[in-house]
Design a protein around this nucleic acid. Structure first.
Length: 477
DNA sequence: AAATCGGCTCGGGCCATTCC
DNA sequence: GGAATGGCCCGAGCCGATTT
C-alpha cells in the first residue's frame, strides 16, 4: 500500500507538471538521483535567477531555499524567457525542445524506476497470470488503464500474431497512403526511382527488423512499389515493360539496384541471430537463452514466438542454399571460451569431425582451447595413442597446433562476407538478393553525371523494353 | 468507325500442399 | 483445422498505324 500511496502522490505531481508546467521542487528532490543534483540545480538556479551552486552541499541548501518558491518562479521564468506578452498556461506539458523537457523525462523515469523497485521489495509486484479482479483493483487505485494485447507500442504491434496477413494491413496501408500523396504523375521516372530507394525502402524498416514478413505481405508491398515505379495509379493498369525482379537486382548484375524487401527483412532478422551468437554476455543473449535455451538448435518451449520465427527463417534459408551461420566463424584469441573439439576455431571443420579417433579417446570432451594448448594434448586422453590411424591423426593435429599462437584478445566471432569481420545487414541483404534475383552478365551502364531518368531510359533501351512501334506490335497492343 | 497486330508481365481465381 | 503459400492458367494492359 505504501508504494501505491507514494505512487499516487507522484502521479499528482506529474499531473500538475503536465497540465501547467509547474514543478514542485520538493518532489524533484525526492526523485532525482544525487549525481544529478549539480546539473539540475544549476539549471534551475539559472532559470530563476538564483546564485549558481558550486558543490553538492550548496545544491542541497540552494534547493531548500528554492523549494517553496519554485512554482511561482517557474512561471516567471516561462514568462520572461519566452513570452513577451501575457503569461500563458501549458496544456500538454513542456514544449518540445524546451531545455527542461529532458528533466521531465528523467523525472518520470526515475519515479517509475523507484516505484517498481519499491514494489519489488515490498513483494506487491504481481507478475503474470494475475486474476482480472486484482488487476482492475490495482489499476483503479493508481489511476491507470488496462491494456490488452495486441496493442501498439511506439508504433509497433505488440502481442499480435504477425504471421497473419491481416495483421499487416496497417503497414501496407501506410505505404499506400504515402504513395498516393506523392502525386506520382508529377514525378519523372528518375524521381520515382529515388523515392522508392530512399523513402519507401526505409519506411517499414521498423517492422521489418522485428518480425518475419509473410510472403503475401512482401508481395503486396513490392506490388505497391512496382506500381509506383511503373506509374500506374491504384486502379488503372499499364504495361509493365520490365519485370520487377529485374529492377530490384543490383546494378552490377544488370538491374537498378533497388533491392528486395524480402532480402531486407531476412537480413534484419539475422542480425538478432548474429547478436545472439556473437555477444555471449549481452543482455540480448541472456534474455533469449533464458527463454529459449542457450543454443540456436535447442527447441524452444514456446509454441508461438518471434524468436522461433527467426530461427525458422534461418533454417529455411539454409535449405535454400543460403547458410548464414556458416559465414559466422570463431576467431580465436585467448581461447578461454572456445571449445577445443566442438567449435570451428581452426579451419572449417571442428576437430571432433576432423580427428574422430582422437576425439573418441578424449575424456574431457568439452575442454577449451586454452586448457588444451597449455599442456600436452594427450594428457586428458583415456589411454595412449595406439595404431596407425590414431598416430597419424595425432601427428597432423600437432602440426596444426604448432602454428597457433595465443593472443591476449578475447575470442570473438567474425562474419566473413565483408572485410571487417563484423556483421552488417547490407552484406546479408546483398547476399540474399544475389542468390534469389535474376542475374545478367552485363552490368548496368550508369553515368552519374547525366540525369537518372536518362540513365533509366538508356537501360530500358539496352534491354529493348521501350514502347517502340515494333515492340508494341509484338505485344499486340 | 471498329478491329487488328501477338509477346511479356502482372493480378486474380482456383486448387493442392505446407505450415503453425 | 485454418491460414499461408505455391503452382497453374487466363485475361488485362492500351501506343498507334494499318486494315477491314
Amino acid at each position: 500500500m505504501l508504494v501505491i500511496k507514494r505512487f499516487s502522490k507522484r502521479k499528482k505531481v506529474f499531473r500538475e507538471t503536465n497540465n501547467t508546467g509547474k514543478i514542485r521542487a520538493k518532489s524533484l528532490l525526492l526523485i532525482l538521483d544525487t549525481d544529478l543534483y549539480p546539473r539540475v540545480v544549476t539549471r534551475v538556479c539559472r532559470c530563476i535567477g538564483h546564485g549558481v551552486a558550486a558543490t553538492n552541499e550548496d545544491c542541497s541548501s540552494n534547493l531548500d531555499v528554492i523549494a517553496d518558491n519554485i512554482t511561482v518562479n517557474m512561471r516567471c521564468f516561462v514568462k520572461c524567457r519566452w513570452s513577451p506578452t501575457s503569461e500563458f498556461q501549458f496544456h500538454c506539458g513542456l514544449k518540445q525542445g524546451d531545455p527542461l523537457a529532458p528533466y521531465l523525462f528523467i523525472l518520470v523515469m526515475e519515479s517509475l524506476h523507484l516505484s517498481i523497485s519499491r514494489a519489488e521489495e515490498a513483494g506487491i509486484f504481481l507478475g503474470v497470470g494475475v486474476a482480472n479482479d486484482s488487476v482492475i483493483a490495482a489499476a483503479g487505485s493508481i489511476g491507470c488503464s488496462i491494456m490488452k494485447t495486441p496493442f501498439k507500442y511506439l508504433g509497433v504491434m505488440v502481442g499480435g500474431n504477425m504471421t497473419k496477413i491481416n495483421a499487416w494491413d496497417d503497414t501496407v496501408n501506410k505505404i499506400k497512403t504515402r504513395l498516393s500523396k506523392w502525386k506520382l504523375g508529377t514525378l519523372s521516372i528518375g524521381g520515382r526511382l529515388t523515392l522508392i530507394k530512399s523513402v519507401l525502402g526505409s519506411t517499414p524498416i521498423y517492422y521489418m527488423s522485428l518480425y518475419k514478413l509473410p510472403k503475401t505481405v512482401l508481395h503486396t508491398m513490392e506490388a505497391i512499389r512496382r506500381d509506383f515505379f511503373n506509374g500506374s495509379q491504384s486502379k488503372d493498369r499499364k504495361i509493365s515493360w520490365i519485370k520487377w525482379s529485374k529492377v530490384l537486382t543490383a546494378k552490377k548484375y544488370g538491374g537498378l539496384g533497388v533491392s528486395s524487401y524480402y532480402a531486407l527483412n531476412r537480413a534484419l532478422l539475422f542480425k538478432w541471430v548474429w547478436r545472439f551468437i556473437s555477444q555471449d554476455s549481452s543482455l540480448w543473449f541472456r534474455i533469449i537463452s533464458a527463454m529459449h535455451g542457450p543454443s540456436i538448435q535447442t527447441r524452444s518451449p514456446f509454441k508461438f514466438s518471434n524468436w522461433r520465427d527467426i530461427i525458422s527463417v534461418v533454417s529455411t534459408l539454409k535449405n535454400q542454399g543460403v547458410d548464414f551461420l556458416s559465414h559466422c566463424k570463431r576467431r580465436v584469441g585467448s581461447c578461454l571460451h572456445t571449445f577445443f573439439w566442438k567449435d570451428k576455431w581452426l579451419g572449417d571443420v571442428p576437430f571432433c569431425e576432423l580427428f574422430p579417433r582422437l576425439f573418441a579417446l578424449e575424456n574431457d570432451k568439452d575442454c577449451t582451447v586454452a586448457t588444451k594448448m597449455q599442456g600436452d594434448i594427450q594428457l586428458s586422453f583415456r589411454r595412449q595413442v595406439r595404431g596407425v590411424i590414431e598416430a597419424s591423426q595425432l601427428v597432423s593435429i600437432l602440426d596444426l597446433l604448432r602454428l597457433q599462437v595465443m593472443s591476449n584478445v578475447d575470442d570473438r566471432w567474425v562474419w566473413d562476407l565483408n572485410g571487417e569481420g563484423v556483421f552488417r545487414v547490407k552484406d546479408a541483404r546483398d547476399f540474399l538478393d544475389e542468390r534469389f534475383l535474376p542475374k545478367d552478365d552485363a552490368a548496368t551502364r550508369w553515368v552519374k553525371y547525366i540525369p537518372i531518368k536518362v540513365n533509366i531510359f538508356a537501360w530500358k533501351l539496352y534491354l529493348d523494353r521501350i514502347p517502340t512501334q515494333s515492340n508494341l506490335v509484338r505485344r499486340g497492343v
